[in-house]
Design a protein around this nucleic acid. Sequence first.
DNA 1: AAGTGCCACCTGCTATAGCAGATGTCCATG
DNA 2: CATGGACATCTGCTATAGCAGGTGGCACTT
Lengths: 229, 229
Amino acid sequence: MSSAVEPFAETETLSLGERAYRRLRDSIVQGTLSAGSRISERSLASALGISAQPVREALRRLEQDGLVVTLPRRGTIVAEFGLERLAELGRIRAALEGVAAALAAERMTGEDLASLGEVVRGMRAATAAADTEALAELNERFHAILQGATGNMFLVRSLEALRAYDDLGRLRAIGSAPKDMPKALREHVSILAALRARDPVLSEARMRAHVLRSLTTNGVLSAPRKRPA
Amino acid sequence: MSSAVEPFAETETLSLGERAYRRLRDSIVQGTLSAGSRISERSLASALGISAQPVREALRRLEQDGLVVTLPRRGTIVAEFGLERLAELGRIRAALEGVAAALAAERMTGEDLASLGEVVRGMRAATAAADTEALAELNERFHAILQGATGNMFLVRSLEALRAYDDLGRLRAIGSAPKDMPKALREHVSILAALRARDPVLSEARMRAHVLRSLTTNGVLSAPRKRPA
DNA sequence: AAGTGCCACCTGCTATAGCAGATGTCCATG
DNA sequence: CATGGACATCTGCTATAGCAGGTGGCACTT
């Protein structure tokens, strides 16, 4: 386990607990810390070159995210997730992103809409060039701008946690086929249109459908299940 | 502030951090710790008769719940919530409870359905007797059984956090009029019917509508807004 | 050889001490 | 009287030390 984690490199402005949290989070999401691995507060602390408290703090937060379970006086291990569980979390994320879209449709400023338009324009170019890497980043920006426009920290935090599971599922399933890139582009365009029209209901429906469709093509969600609205 | 919190009474089996977390959570929800109150790790620790670490741990978790914000090196204060924010959180909760209902419709065992039937039967009696207190408890059981049937810890945890905001909103608005009790009963009955039919889409729609309607009669949600499906 | 109790070790958990940074007060200065 | 700066004091944050409980293995017994 000490081989999976390295000490911190440079002095940053974030607290050690925060840094340890993100570090562990990334390690779990990227699979560096595989499911079932036992994590010791002390050994991990010495591996990171810090004390035990920040590590413990990070583990507590990860536990609240559900990425880790700790048996009192026994140990802490990274949680395991079957495909079924990942599918559940995907559906939850779809619902939350839908609500985020609805809120954004009501609250978004013209500046936000302009930023989104810029992102979508970039998506069109990246799709034409089949640049999957740029597309992934643009997709992240798209959702980040939208969620940020809601101004709701709870929503942002929850979706951030759910994204971790999403990445975790991406490891299990084979990478999404590049042939659905045009489809994703069309969906983003239609979502943006609904946002511009300031239609919460339509924005929510389209966003939710988009996330669900994305999950099915990723193999996380099996059936193209019937959905409301 | 030290007058709002008292030392722990007896030795329980839970960790001090966990106890402090729940204690503070309840105090915030019940309004004992009003919004904007400054919380000091040290003073709160001495008030509870424990050390500072468990308190800090609890504050970190509360921060992740969004109930508290902490400015580095400056202090920790309980977050403030306008009615608008509470309305947002209510809509989020409605969406999540909807997903929970959908999952429950797929996974619920016959035993779970029987328990729900029992609860609904109790609701019918309590509604006839206008016993609001029993009704509140039964309502809580109803949702608890349903959420537990999903077996999804993330969902349960998130909804638990959201319930805190819900209680917070209940303090602001005047108590729900007792005249909507029959309406709530009918909604619960219809939800149970959808669950028995194992219809995820219908269960979700009805549950979501139920939560939204409940929020509107509580005054948290203003308009009886149009909703999907 | 199989069962059993004991003990060293490891775990999460809590307490104490002390750090750097931010704040407010009080005094000297214009 | 107004203003700027130094210091006491508060804050969150981290490190060190030590606690109780749980595990595994080794020796001893039968």
